[in-house]
Computed example of a mutant assay.
Amino acid sequence: MNRFLVIQTDFGLSDGAVSAMYGVALNVNPSLRIFDLTHDIPQYNIWEASYRLYQTISYWPKETVFISVVDPGVGSERRSIVVKTKSNQYIVTPDNGTITHIKKYIGIEEARLIDEKVNRLPNSGHSYTFHGRDVYAYTGARLASEVITFEQVGPEIPIDSLIELPVLEAYIQNGAIKGNIDILDVRFGNLWTNIDRSLFQKLDVDYGDSFEVTIENETRQVYKNIMTFGRSFADSHLGEPLLYVNSLDKIGVAINQGSFAKAYHIEAGAKWKITICKVPKFVYNENSV
């Protein structure tokens, strides 16, 4: 029985690159079931490739094979690898940091170097710029179709030798949580932070509580305002900002039916910092007027 094959790239769909990867995989096994994770990773953005795998992988069946191709170092000395996660799934990818979030939050059981003498599309040996097609699609399809076993991918390599990107940790300081904006919920413009719900709850929070939210980049303060913590977007009025728990159990920042990122020109990455501080609820008293 074939495993599922799931592909993500930064190729987009405006040319034939993704279609060529499909063709290679289906030539290995015409009955293989292939799915797209996304092909809209920003060009060369290894961090986002790593995060999108983390966002998605836990919801797929065991033994699913993932191919991730965001590969600014294609044709260089960077390694091509397949890793087996502790949840018994496989990721075929360049060794450039794409497995960062998987290693940290899910765990890697074993890693192997792709032996291109065996696991490379026949007659492609003189091409060095499309490993997504020639190495990763071919190897991923052979592994998903059980033409090869994981052990036949190539020699085992130490897990500690895998390239990782720096991952920042959120923390509490002087009664405020300081964290990072890891990524955007692109279509809707919400901000996804690295602040776990469990850490946020240490501020003794409840739905409806108010918080001062400050967002900065390396050069300036971009945003500072009071907003409410809501169970869902319906807990705020149209156009109002709110804090909420996103689908990865982390704190998100949103505008009800609007794009927070576009409204305030906010991006994601290591330089984008967020501080969240609980403030007292304001109670209007008519007798005080």
Rank of each mutant, 00 (worst) to 15 (best):
T9V: 03
G230Q: 15
K278Q: 13
S236F: 09
Q152D: 14
R78Q: 12
Q201F: 09
N29L: 01
R79G: 00
A17F: 15
E267G: 14
F188I: 11
C277G: 03
A49D: 01
V186W: 01
E109P: 01
I108A: 06
S124H: 00
V65P: 07
D206S: 15
K202F: 00
N287C: 01
Q8L: 12
T85D: 02
I215N: 03
K103Y: 10
D71K: 05
V153K: 11
Q55M: 10
I266Q: 02
Y136S: 05
V245M: 07
Y105V: 01
S232D: 15
F200C: 08
D235F: 13
L243G: 11
L242I: 07
T139N: 07
P280R: 05
I183S: 11
S80Q: 03
I195T: 03
K281T: 10
V186E: 14
K86G: 03
F4D: 09
T93W: 07
G258I: 00
Y105S: 05
P280A: 03
T129H: 09
E110M: 10
E212K: 13
P158G: 06
G258L: 05
F66I: 02
V283N: 10
M227H: 05
A17W: 11
H39E: 03
V18I: 12
I108L: 05
G97A: 08
D134T: 06
P158A: 06
V69Q: 02
M21A: 13
V65Y: 02
P166I: 02
D10T: 04
I46M: 08
I255M: 08
H39C: 02
Y59F: 14
G23Y: 04
Y284C: 05
S247R: 13
Q43N: 11
G12V: 03
A17Q: 11
V28I: 15
N88I: 01
P94S: 05
V167M: 10
T64S: 12
L248S: 14
F35M: 15
N190W: 12
H265W: 04
T98A: 14
V245E: 09
L143V: 05
A170G: 13
Y207H: 12
L26T: 09
Y54K: 13
I181N: 03
I159Q: 06
F211I: 04
N225G: 12
P166V: 05
S247E: 14
I276W: 10
F130R: 09
T64I: 00
Y171S: 13
G107M: 06
F188R: 12
R33Q: 14
T275H: 01
N88A: 11
I195C: 09
T100E: 02
D36M: 08
A270W: 04
I215R: 02
D206Q: 14
K262F: 04
M227S: 00
L53V: 09
I266E: 00
P166W: 00
V147W: 11
I226Q: 12
A268W: 10
I34V: 15
K62D: 02
T129F: 13
E267N: 13
R78D: 06
L5D: 04
D204V: 00
D71S: 08
A137C: 03
G208R: 08
R231D: 04
H39Q: 07
I41R: 06
P241Y: 06
D160M: 04
R33F: 10
L199S: 09
L143K: 09
D160T: 09
N287E: 14
D249Q: 14
A17C: 08
G269A: 03
E48I: 14
F260S: 01
L26I: 05
V65T: 07
Y207W: 08
Q173T: 05
I114H: 09
K103D: 15
R120K: 14
P42W: 01
N190A: 11
